[in-house]
Amino acid sequence: MTLSLEDVQSRVPTLSLSLSRVGVTNVEKVIRIQVNGTEQLFSARLDCFVDLGPHQKGAHMSRFEEVVNEAIGEVVLGESAFRAETLAQHIAEKVRDRQGARRAEVHIEARYPEYKPAPVSGIETQEIYSLLGAAVASEAGTRRLIGIRVQGLTACPCAQTIIQTSSHERLRADGFTEDEIERIFEAVPVATHNQRGLATLHIGCPETCDTDIDAEWLVRIAEDSMSSEIYELMKRSDEAAVVEKAHRRPRFVEDCVREMVRGVVEELPMLTDQHFVSARQENLETIHQHNVQAERFGLLGEIRREIATGDQTPNHLSLREWLDGAN
């Protein structure tokens, strides 16, 4: 007697109800990439989802793994640069086709190294960044999302103002003139408390977009939005330069988000009004037990108009809404 294996996932469910997202999460892969003739390894984590129709019991989970392996081999090997959003796009399109779904969604986070010189000594230091990519493949086409997550240093403007005020009173009581006090504050940065900042910046490309966005551009914009960038390896001269730079550029968490958005608007003029922007800053407090956070998200056209006119945009399109196609 011959027994045939039934495709259980294709059975009719007990309740005819579609599901918004079904898939696999935390799929870990080591991706090999050819860069300048040498092979580099990237550690990546992926989430893959499809929508599920009301007449299908379950998704074929093993097909997610098959598609991920195929896409990594076909898309990434041999490319001159690793683009997480490109890999996410190919996986999403393959998953949608393989699962017979109307919609597929893929998210990728990869940790990758960049080498940069310390600000004074020039000593080379390795910095680790998070490269983020996402894609949604549907009947309308494929939306891509490229992002980065970086760390930096912020100096609190509020505490600095309080300390400067009290210092000004003490100097005046000791007989210093207003001109001398001003010269002192110009020469010596005033103390304040610091936070380590975590900046996350995303750019979303609509279905008809063919613009390539270099992750290094986003890293530069995000790092420059904070009081100072940070370095894993520094000499004493570098430490002094970083601390002084931060205290001469005090910024609130809100300032960092606004500066990130300014950087996108001014440094990426090739982006259209239909591109999506999400800027998020979280500062890890040092004199409080809580952290602070700020965000701005929406279509770039709305952000440009608000900056130009000063009129507040009534509704900010969220990242989730943009991925779902709710322009």
Score class of each variant (00 low, 15 high):
139 E>W: 09
151 Q>K: 13
156 C>S: 04
133 G>C: 04
143 R>Q: 13
133 G>R: 06
151 Q>N: 14
133 G>S: 08
131 L>P: 12
131 L>Q: 08
162 I>R: 11
136 V>M: 05
140 A>L: 11
147 G>V: 01
159 A>T: 14
153 L>W: 07
144 R>V: 09
151 Q>H: 12
134 A>I: 02
141 G>H: 05
163 I>K: 05
135 A>V: 06
142 T>Q: 05
165 T>A: 14
130 S>V: 10
144 R>D: 13
165 T>R: 11
151 Q>F: 01
146 I>A: 00
149 R>V: 00
142 T>E: 01
164 Q>A: 14
158 C>H: 03
139 E>M: 11
135 A>S: 10
146 I>V: 15
152 G>V: 06
143 R>I: 01
155 A>L: 07
136 V>Q: 12
152 G>R: 08
142 T>I: 02
137 A>W: 02
139 E>K: 09
149 R>C: 09
151 Q>P: 05
138 S>I: 03
153 L>S: 09
144 R>L: 00
143 R>G: 03
148 I>V: 14
146 I>M: 11
161 T>C: 04
159 A>C: 13
161 T>Q: 14
139 E>V: 02
149 R>Q: 15
160 Q>K: 11
140 A>F: 05
138 S>C: 09
145 L>T: 03
162 I>C: 11
151 Q>W: 01
151 Q>R: 14
134 A>T: 04
130 S>C: 07
129 Y>E: 09
162 I>D: 13
163 I>M: 12
133 G>N: 06
135 A>D: 13
133 G>H: 01
136 V>P: 12
155 A>D: 00
158 C>Y: 02
159 A>H: 09
159 A>W: 00
133 G>W: 09
155 A>P: 01
146 I>K: 04
155 A>V: 11
133 G>F: 00
153 L>Y: 01
150 V>A: 03
144 R>C: 04
158 C>D: 06
137 A>V: 04
156 C>K: 03
142 T>A: 11
156 C>Q: 08
135 A>F: 13
162 I>H: 12
137 A>N: 08
159 A>Y: 08
148 I>F: 10
129 Y>I: 13
146 I>C: 13
162 I>Y: 14
148 I>Q: 08
162 I>P: 13
150 V>N: 08
136 V>D: 10
